[in-house]
Design a protein around this nucleic acid. Sequence first.
DNA 1: TTTGTAGTAATGTATGTACATATTAATTTA
DNA 2: TAAATTAATATGTACATACATTACTACAAA
Lengths: 242, 242
Amino acid sequence: MKYSLDHKSPVPLHIQAEELLRNLIAEEEFQNGKLLPNEVELAKMLAISRTTLRHAINKLVFEGLLIRKKRTGTKVNQATVSSKSNNWLSFSQEMKLRGITIKNFELHVTWVYPDEMLANFFEIKTDRKVLKMERVRGKPNEPFVYFISYFHPRIGLTGDEDFKRPLYELLEMDHSTVATLSKEEISAHAADDDIAAKLRIKNGEPVLFRKRFVFDQGERPLEYNLGYYKADSFVYTVESRR
Amino acid sequence: MKYSLDHKSPVPLHIQAEELLRNLIAEEEFQNGKLLPNEVELAKMLAISRTTLRHAINKLVFEGLLIRKKRTGTKVNQATVSSKSNNWLSFSQEMKLRGITIKNFELHVTWVYPDEMLANFFEIKTDRKVLKMERVRGKPNEPFVYFISYFHPRIGLTGDEDFKRPLYELLEMDHSTVATLSKEEISAHAADDDIAAKLRIKNGEPVLFRKRFVFDQGERPLEYNLGYYKADSFVYTVESRR
DNA sequence: TTTGTAGTAATGTATGTACATATTAATTTA
DNA sequence: TAAATTAATATGTACATACATTACTACAAA
């Protein structure tokens, strides 16, 4: 790992420093609570001024990644070690972050009539077809999620899109539709025959089930999404404040 | 509205400036997209250095409240909508809301030595005992949750409290401790012997597992909580906005 | 044993200064 | 007139410097 800055690079030093710090605090010893080198030292090591270094550290402190304590030092915020507050990453982004390569096992797109509930959510009639997408995803050798998504006709999807691209990117770029609000319900269930087959597990084994209602800026319904996650393969994290 | 800073106050200028900016950008004209006064001007107006002012502005920019553009100026981020989901009901409140009467099956309180992870989270040494509370709760005829809680010694619990009272009320009333931030991790698992016995289900049956880190206003760790929910008895709901 | 006090090591606050860079607006040039 | 150039103006980056505050340590005094 490279622990020095390039003073000739066009990338600002405080950005480089920030990046370096991110790598640094990913290291085990710091994850376990070891103090970072003190600012004066660190600034000397990186050959930048303390002000510039602090600029970088500040950003991470604002982000909640680091915690400073006078007379003690700066260390990784233990509260964040295991969780990532942002649950707005797409599945693929999330997995990439964890260093897992994703394979799409199945990808099945059809037009279907919505049931009562779905028509209700989308605020359309049951004779108006909607796009349904099913996919099974996971590591190259084991599937661990089975997704079912229904999209509101308003979006204008044809079904011929490249669904291998990150979904929310696709919606934003090509359909200028921005998913802004999501309401989710998470529960645990025993897998039925269908789900068990998709995830290659036994009937009755536990799955994490997530139902998700997605809305755009105007709180208009966009997507209805069901996700069945193989147990132990997925942890859902939430951060809330009052 | 007061638009000047108190240079004699013990409150740091950049904090005062930040506060002032928050008020400023709450004003209608700025909400509607009007540019803030430029940095040099504003610094002069507030009688602080540009560096200090920038420090304040930076915080709001990191927060996503303001947007800067070179040669143009700084203005309120139009895209910002404040969220704040509220899953802050206590278990009993939650259940009451659903019309379910709660019975406490077991309630076991002990003092134990924290393991490595817990000591780390609480930022204490492993030879400092912490209060551990276990309880099984559910409907009169069937248990459906098994909770384990560890409380930070700082709170000052003795173990003789009336834990039948709502927990967060107890903390607020009697120990002036307010739980403000929680980070949670939710996953599905198969029940092991212990859990199965507590919940009166079979080994291997699905449970929803929730790990919860609770903090006070100062982001100091308060409680570490593990919850095993019998499948189909509990749905976790989340609302998030970006 | 407790309480007070001085030292010290870390972060926290604040300023002044200088130059870089991006973008718009004005001006010049083809 | 249209394109290219230049100027102006806002933010962006970076440094050196100084003193304040906090909280821990150690030792002395009550």
